[in-house]
């Protein structure tokens, strides 16, 4: 019985946890979305793959991108939201060959805030998609690209 207890309460990351995070256990994929969403070729396919119908625009999402990007290969993006119970933040670019640039799973105790850098192949609309309390919301902004991002 003592042993069972030890197994149950095994501190922090147990062996299984360590193996799981290193992806060493076959068939135990990391949580999150499927790769299909990341290979979607347009916004509507990406929304489908993410399980989104039509996301509402929300003023509680602040999407910060440059108006003009001289170098489309490195475009800074910040998504910040004061929506309650944020679970997921995704960054999409409508004109890219793969529209979903990145997806972030936000657990409890983590702010609704992400900064990263993405490639934008041509002038396009960047969409920040935020899942909060089980519902999807979005904010969009156009970025003019003067030099493409290596056909991202």
């Amino acid at each position: 019985m003592e042993r069972r207890k030890a197994l149950k309460t095994g501190g922090g990351l147990g062996l299984l946890g360590v193996l799981a995070v290193l992806g060493l256990i076959p068939g135990l994929a990391w949580a999150g979305i499927g790769r299909a969403a990341l290979e979607a070729g347009n916004l509507s396919d990406a929304f489908d793959a993410l399980g989104v119908t039509i996301p509402e625009n929300s003023e509680l999402i602040r999407l910060t991108v440059p108006d003009v990007a001289e170098n489309g290969a490195v475009v800074p993006v910040t998504v910040e939201s004061s929506l309650a119970h944020i679970e997921q933040i995704s960054i999409l670019v409508d004109k890219n060959i793969n529209v979903l640039a990145a997806n972030f799973i936000i657990p409890k105790g983590v702010a609704g805030f992400i900064t990263t850098r993405i490639k934008i192949g041509q002038t396009a609309t960047v969409v920040a998609l935020v899942k909060a309390d089980g519902k999807f919301y979005r904010a969009s902004k156009e970025v003019q690209v003067t030099q493409g991002g290596c056909s991202a």
Binding site: I97, L100, A102, I105, I118
Partner: peptide, 8 residues
């Protein structure tokens, strides 16, 4: 995070 091809 899951990255697609468009992360710099």
């Amino acid at each position: 995070a899951q990255f697609g091809t468009a992360v710099s």
